[in-house]
Every structure is written in structure tokens, then in C-alpha cells.
């Protein structure tokens, strides 16, 4: 019975000194007594915390101040209040970038999670080749996003293999990355193709916690596959859903490499995202103030959506 009270790795009680050590006849230490393992004090972390605050947060806050200036990256600047933010709202290119960013982020979130979960379910048990297939599906994750994007750029090229295949079936070739209606979808496909393997691994870890006995019991009780998935699998992998969806949403919101390598934001801004526009405004056009304002907006959007997403996937039980 005691075996079911905790996992074999649960040494919390031992460390806290609340249970006797194995084989010992020592009396249990009281909760208020000195712990057996005392290596560490909270204030030991102060230097690290101070450095994190200084390097991460103070530096970022300092950078954010430029969002309220007209700095061009060289020479003096003036504080111009909220002018950069007004310009963002008035600039159709920035609004377009925002829309593209949201489209890619949520498309990426859905595609990777649905694809990853389906792959995880398929490769969880029974299939003999599952270990090999897991490796194959995970392999794109370890590649550089730039390398993957350049391979796909070749595939999408007007004279590339994709149009060759279309030619075999009598279809007209397309300019995949230069067509404003297709380019954004092409970027999304590349993003999802590379990252679905990562989500699969997260869901496989979650599925490992689902006891087969419960599923078998439910099956014996006549529960359908869908009901077993809905009422046993999904609740069990809820933490995995929270992690995978949060990571994918954030990764989707800050997409940069794939866009730069595949389309450079083109044609005519059709695939521009907030991250690529931050780069372009700041480093290519020397509008550091405006670029900082865009970066601040992107940060706030990521913060808001992450909080909302966390709230949506919270375990309410």
C-alpha cells in the first residue's frame, strides 16, 4: 500500500527528515528540526539573481527606453513620447506584419500540436518500428532552421522538385515563395515540418504516464476509442498540452529564421512578421527607435498570449 503513495524517486520525505532512513531504528526528526541535507541557503542565489536582473531585465528595460526616442543608431536622439507607437498603428506594413505574425503563431500552434499528438499516439505502443520512426520524425528538430529553410527554398523554387511533381500530373508550376497568397503558407509548412518532432517527443513523455491498465479496463467496459482518448488520454497528457502549446505559441510569435531564409519578408511584405520587421527597421533602415517600439509591442503580445494560453490550459481539477 505504501508503494502507491509516491514514486521511487520521491525522496522528499527523507530529505526533510520526516521518515526514518531505511534499516534504521532512528527516531523520526521533527518537522522543525534541522534538515539532514543543508547544503544551500536562499541568499546564495543573490549574486546570480542580481546578474540576471542586471543583464536580462535592466538591459532589456534600458533598450525599451529607445522605443520612446527617434534614435537612428548614430548620434543624438530625442524623446518623442508615443510617436513610434502611433506610427505603428498608422503603418499598414506594421499592421500587416502583426497579422502575419498571429497567423503564423496560431497556425504553427495548431499544426505542430495536432501533428505531434497524432504522431505520439501512433508511435506510443505496439508498432514494432516505433523507435526508428521516432528518430526519423525527430531528426529535423536538430537541424539548423536556416539549413532546413534553404532546402525547402530549393524545393519551392520555380524550377524545383515541387513544380516538377506538379508538372508530372499536368498542373501549372507556381511561384510558391513569390505568390502573396501562397508564400505565408509555405513558411508555415516549413516551420511545422521542422518542429512537429519536438512536440511529438513532449506528448510521448506525457503518454508514458498513462497506465495501460486503465485504458484496458475502459476498453473492457465498452468505452470507444474516442471516449478513451477524450476521458483517459487527454486528462493524463494535460501537462504536456500546456507545455507544448506554450512553447509553440512563443516560438511561432517570434519566428524569424525561416522567414528571412525563405522569403526575406517578401513579396512586398506579404510574409513580413514583427520579428523580421524589427530587424529590418533597426539594422537595415537604421530606425532604432521605431525598431525598439516594434520589439516592445512584440514582447507585450508574447506576454499577453502566453498568460492567456497558460490560463486556458491550466489544470482546474
Amino acid at each position: 500500500m505504501t508503494a502507491t503513495m509516491g514514486t521511487p524517486q520521491d525522496t522528499g520525505a527523507l530529505v526533510r527528515g520526516s521518515v526514518p532512513a531505511a534499516g534504521g531504528g532512528q527516531p523520526a526528526r521533527s518537522r522543525r528540526s534541522r534538515p539532514l541535507i543543508t547544503y544551500g541557503r536562499w541568499w546564495w542565489a543573490l549574486p546570480a539573481v542580481a546578474m540576471v536582473l542586471l543583464i536580462h531585465y535592466a538591459a532589456t528595460a534600458g533598450g525599451a527606453l529607445y522605443a520612446f526616442t527617434d534614435w537612428t543608431g548614430i548620434g543624438d536622439f530625442e524623446f518623442i513620447g508615443l510617436d513610434n507607437f502611433r506610427r505603428i498603428l498608422d503603418d499598414p506594413d506594421s499592421i500587416g506584419s502583426l497579422q502575419n505574425t498571429l497567423f503564423l503563431a496560431f497556425g504553427f500552434l495548431v499544426l505542430t500540436n495536432v501533428g505531434g499528438l497524432l504522431l505520439a499516439l501512433a508511435l506510443n505502443r505496439t508498432l514494432k518500428t516505433r523507435y526508428l520512426l521516432r528518430v526519423l520524425f525527430f531528426m529535423p528538430v536538430v537541424l539548423s532552421p536556416l539549413a532546413v529553410s534553404y532546402v525547402w527554398k530549393f524545393i519551392f523554387d520555380f524550377n524545383g522538385p515541387l513544380n516538377d511533381v506538379l508538372g508530372w500530373v499536368g498542373a501549372e508550376p507556381r511561384t510558391w515563395l513569390a505568390d502573396p497568397a501562397l508564400a505565408l503558407w509555405a513558411v508555415l509548412v516549413v516551420m511545422a515540418w521542422q518542429t512537429t518532432g519536438m512536440v511529438m517527443v513532449i506528448y510521448l513523455a506525457g503518454l508514458a504516464t498513462v497506465p495501460p491498465e486503465i485504458e484496458e479496463a475502459a476498453a473492457l467496459d465498452g468505452a470507444s476509442t474516442w471516449r478513451r482518448f477524450r476521458y483517459i488520454t487527454v486528462p493524463s497528457v494535460r501537462p504536456s498540452i500546456a507545455i507544448a502549446s506554450t512553447l509553440m505559441l512563443i516560438q511561432g510569435l517570434r519566428v524569424f529564421d525561416q522567414v528571412m531564409a525563405l522569403t526575406g519578408g517578401g513579396p512586398a511584405g506579404a510574409t513580413e512578421t514583427l520579428a523580421t520587421q524589427v530587424y529590418k527597421e533597426t539594422f537595415a533602415l537604421s530606425n532604432f527607435g521605431y525598431g525598439a517600439a516594434l520589439a516592445l509591442v512584440l514582447t507585450m503580445i508574447m506576454l499577453v498570449f502566453s498568460v492567456l494560453q497558460q490560463a486556458a490550459t491550466r489544470d482546474r481539477s
Partner: peptide, 20 residues
């Protein structure tokens, strides 16, 4: 400023892609 040339360049790119 560099933005003028960028607007011309991306604008022409859009004309070829059927935008604007």
C-alpha cells in the same frame, strides 16, 4: 534615408507579384 530605396524596391517587387 535608406527607407526610400527600400520602399521603391519592395514596391516594384509587389508590382511583379500582383500586389498594389
Amino acid at each position: 534615408n535608406p527607407g526610400v530605396y527600400d520602399a521603391l524596391s519592395t514596391g516594384v517587387q509587389g508590382l511583379l507579384a500582383g500586389q498594389g
